[in-house]
């Protein structure tokens, strides 16, 4: 969800950087533990070609895959206590995002397709402002890319995107209707799935 605070916070400073890159999916490590935009948010990275992607998952885990995290909160009053008692967690844990590439911008022109060259590792990543998101969502061709991604929970990602991002625009009903119609075209033979998405979007 892009709220005012985040809007002020994210565009100015990067939320993280690309640590795994491909044409279809990116992994972004957040610079600060737990400080990531919500699932379904649109983020961007790259300088000449700006690549847009939608957050499909947020993971916080041990940086060292051989070290497992263990329960620490037995005697703590709150999770904040645990982090205060164990400041090393800030360095040992990291929050990373999986994103699905949905388009790119070249010379002010936005394309809803996979960029021909993926972003670089360590490319700084920014959260898109509401304005940028709406600019990107003038048409909904990118929903095709989202839908065809092999993510089992892609429907939830789509719902989050539509509900939180478009839902916060000035004229949500018009945008949501158009987005819904695009989805309906994409899911013309799976109305069950379509209905489930739409019902949740309209809540």
């Amino acid at each position: 969800m892009i709220n005012k605070n985040q809007e002020e916070k994210y565009p100015k400073s990067p939320i993280g950087e690309v640590i795994e890159t491909s044409a279809f999916n990116l992994t972004i490590q957040c610079h600060k533990l737990y400080e990531s935009p919500a699932i379904g948010s649109l983020i961007k990275c790259g300088t000449e070609t700006i690549v847009y992607s939608v957050i499909s998952n947020i993971k916080t885990q041990s940086l060292d895959t051989t070290r497992t995290t263990i329960a620490l909160a037995q005697n703590a009053f709150s999770v904040e206590d645990v982090y205060q008692e164990n400041p090393q967690l800030q360095n040992l844990l990291s929050t990373s995002l999986n994103t699905i590439v949905v388009g790119y911008k070249q010379n002010t022109h936005i394309n809803h397709e996979i960029p021909s060259i993926p972003p670089k590792i360590h490319d700084l990543t920014y959260c898109c402002t509401l304005e940028e998101t709406l600019e990107f969502s003038q048409t909904f061709g990118f929903l095709r890319i989202l839908r065809s991604s092999n993510n089992a929970h892609i429907d939830d990602v789509i719902v989050s995107f539509l509900r939180s991002t478009l839902g916060n625009s000035k004229n949500p009903s018009q945008l949501l209707l158009r987005a819904g119609q695009e989805l309906a075209r994409l899911l013309k033979d799976d109305t069950q799935r379509l209905t489930q998405i739409l019902e949740r979007v309209s809540l």
Binding site: Y83, Q84, E85, P87, Q88, L89, Q90
Partner: peptide, 9 residues
């Protein structure tokens, strides 16, 4: 490791 109010590592 710094414990207390401004805990950090």
């Amino acid at each position: 490791l710094k414990y207390g109010n401004a805990a950090k590592s």
